[in-house]
Design a protein around this nucleic acid. Structure first.
Lengths: 370, 370
DNA sequence: CGTCTCGATGTAATCGATTCCAAGCGTCAC
DNA sequence: GTGACGCTTGGAATCGATTACATCGAGACG
């Protein structure tokens, strides 16, 4: 592959001049520039990004470490991250942790070794020494979706408390009183937060959340199935189940169907994270939708700000409840084609008109500087 | 960040010796090795992969350019590729083309600039000059799923002809005679191949595939919806629709539901590419399943072979029909929990027991050296 | 007409590794 | 005693770029 030396030789100039032309340095005569460009063209020369990175100490690359690519929520997040990064002149290298701390560490180490300019992480656990060290050492870093408490790193996430409150209100009005949750790993913020929000919302209706109604999942489908089976084996099974992510909801659907039970007649189901498929499941699943694309874009902007030395703010957006049929038929239906998803596909969906809620709603967007 | 020089200084040796220790070169005394390792440890030194790549002209990185990350088929493919690559000591950088040739080119160029060791591509179109040049220039390359005819690059893919034949046989037995297809872009091999296989299978049953029953899609949900609407507007709409990928099937479901029609009573639906969600849609969707994980692994193995100078073979695996309920109830039901997907989730599924087929079945696996 | 300035270009150092070559030194055989 | 050999180790070139500094020539100005 042709190098800058070859170009210099063909154009009859020094490598410095070639470099100047390539980097749009002003002090190159028009005539020389043309000659160099012609040489570049004729050789099909492309600068070696590796050499350039070594010299400039910049890779124009962002690392993104996510918990599970197979989860449509993270897939969409990854996509929006790449899109925004590209428009900012950065590439993205994705590391998939599969919810495994060791794999997460592997990817963080790998990305750091490659000298990425900045790191976007949705941590799988409470944080390995490696990640904490990196943060402390000044690697530009931003947490997205999940975060690690006590680390001085901006966080871009969605607050689901209002939406969870709306969900509980929805369940309550449909007559559900024995409600259970399939929780995510306690080590993740989203895992514990969603349980707490759910518990608080239930409490505001005077409903308990007994321990047997808290199933420990790991954000994967299989755990949703396992936990749901446990619920159904209880002497007094719940009449509604809330899955803390979409894959565990899928597992729950599996388990319920395997028992020959019907949603929502025998048991209601709702999920955190909305995905296109939920419109077409049997029945369509009521879910809490995060502004995923906006989350990804905001995270990239925050990280790029940090990389380029600008002040960086944490961003909190709000999630919203999307009512479908999996918790029971509300008074009204709204069956026709409705609000579209990203691609403009008609969705069988109703964004809940903020039902009467005993707790004050949160402001739609919070911003705080870190 | 500490460099090899710092390590050398701390250990009281030259950089050459440090490098030897790091690369497990034999001629270093045990005592020196220990001293160097101690220095590495105390400094938290990690070798700079950028510098190393520049010197060795190897990045130990594979590029993967896929057509659409949001398509669960490609997500799973990407995941298995990364997994296998990791076990071979390579990292993967994914480029998402979003079915856009310009984006595909952007990513190929970017990956080439980064001097990846090899390229895995599922081309969005017939192939840009850029990609053809790269192939000709000797960049180790392997096509996966889709390919570009006439280019001397190994192909790893699944043959769906048998499965399509099985599908048509299934449709025929259920009484469907007016069958339509939502095709992918003609520029992709999978786009045209699936139409041809479908047409051939129909012909073997004496059924026509008139032009009005061939809808032009682009592998995205919106096009599936649009094409299906067109079908339903025909004076004589089809009684069965075959979508050439899962996203277009999703769009078709949307369109059918928006008309208030029922699957399979009013119209049957089947899809190419099986995904976990198809088990839980209303109704569960009959689909042609590719051995996605194996495809990804085989592709990586082929590419690594090529990179490391071993002979490389094209690989063709076979897809199989998975019968569910979206084409109508067959004689039997098979309602209980059944064969699992990758994660072991019970699926409401029946792998078709190779129905009587007028054409001879293909051998299960073909291998040919390229 | 000499010098000063400025634009255009080249020379060479540098980034952080790897690796060839040479050198130092101890040991052993003759 | 000395030459050869082998084991360790260091010096220095190298990969392909960027960039500070030097140089050179031409035009401006006193």
């Amino acid at each position: 592959m042709a190098s800058i030396k070859d170009v210099a030789a063909v154009a009859g100039v020094s490598v410095a001049t070639v470099s100047r032309v390539l980097n749009a340095h002003p002090s190159v005569s028009a005539e020389t520039r043309a000659r160099v460009l012609a040489a570049v063209e004729s050789l099909g020369y492309r600068p070696n990004a590796v050499a350039r990175s070594l010299r400039t100490d910049q890779t124009h690359t962002l690392g993104l470490v996510i918990s599970d690519v197979l989860n449509p929520y993270f897939t969409e997040l990854a996509r929006s991250v790449e899109e925004e990064a590209r428009s900012c002149g950065y590439s993205v290298i994705i590391g998939n942790a599969d919810e495994r701390p060791d794999l997460q560490d592997h990817h963080v180490r790998n990305l750091l070794d490659r000298r990425i300019d900045g790191l976007l992480v949705s941590p799988t656990d409470g944080g390995s020494p490696l990640m904490l060290d990196a943060a402390r050492a000044g690697t530009p870093m931003v947490f997205v979706d999940r975060w690690i408490p006590g680390v001085d790193v901006p966080v871009v996430r969605a607050d689901g408390r209002t939406a969870v409150q709306d969900l509980v209100s929805h369940l309550y009005r449909l007559g559900h009183r024995r409600v259970a949750i399939i929780a995510g790993p306690a080590a993740t913020t989203t895992g514990s937060e969603r349980v707490e929000a759910f518990r608080a919302a239930l409490a505001s209706y005077g409903l308990p959340l007994p321990d047997v109604y808290i199933g420990q999942g790991d954000f994967q489908a299989a755990s949703g199935r396992r936990v749901t089976e446990g619920f159904l084996d209880l002497p007094e099974p719940p009449d509604a189940v809330f899955a803390a992510d979409n894959l565990m909801a899928l597992g729950a659907l599996d388990a319920i169907r395997a028992r020959g039970l019907r949603v929502p007649d025998d048991i209601a189901l709702a999920a955190f994270d909305d995905i296109p498929w939920f419109v077409h499941t049997d029945p369509p699943v009521t879910a809490i939708a995060q502004p995923t694309g906006e989350l990804g874009r905001a995270a990239v902007r925050a990280l790029v700000d940090r990389i380029e030395g600008r002040p960086t703010a944490s961003v909190t957006l709000t999630a919203r409840l999307v009512v479908r049929r999996s918790c029971g038929e509300a008074g009204q239906t709204g069956e026709a084609g409705e609000a579209g998803q990203d691609g403009g596909i008609p969705e069988q969906t109703r964004v809940v008109p903020v039902p009467a809620s005993p707790t004050p709603p949160l402001p739609p967007v919070q911003r705080s500087t870190t």
